[in-house]
């Protein structure tokens, strides 16, 4: 089977900004994204509001080419790192049907 090397950008943080991040990622060149509700604890977890009050933690994932991945990570670090509890990382992935993740 043919596998294509691409990048996986994972962003975890306050769910209040996650939909925005997903849409901004799409504008920067991602062809799609996945949002999942998650639980956890981190260095700024004091900022995290209890589930009852409606604010939770979410994870957004993008599978994108390397240049788009860098654009997304740069955007997130400039726009959100100062004020929000959010972390982001990049990993190498091998995907099937690689052409689906590249914008023409």
């Amino acid at each position: 089977m043919q596998l294509y090397p691409l990048k996986l950008v994972t962003v975890v943080g306050e769910s209040v900004i996650m939909e925005d991040i997903a849409e901004e990622g799409a504008k920067l060149g991602a062809t799609g994204y996945t949002i999942t509700e998650v639980n956890g604890h981190g260095s700024r977890s004091a900022r995290n509001v209890a589930s009852t009050t409606g604010a939770r933690t979410a994870k957004v994932e993008f599978v994108v080419p390397g240049d788009v991945a860098v654009k997304i990570l740069t955007h997130i670090s400039h726009q959100y790192f100062d004020d929000y509890a959010v972390i982001a990382w990049l990993s190498d992935v091998q995907v099937v049907r690689g052409q689906q993740y590249v914008r023409d």
Partner: peptide
């Protein structure tokens, strides 16, 4: 809380 978080991110939600 979410409205304040979006508009005034510098404010400490605690």
């Amino acid at each position: 809380p979410p409205a304040v978080r979006l508009t005034l991110p510098e404010a400490n939600p605690t």
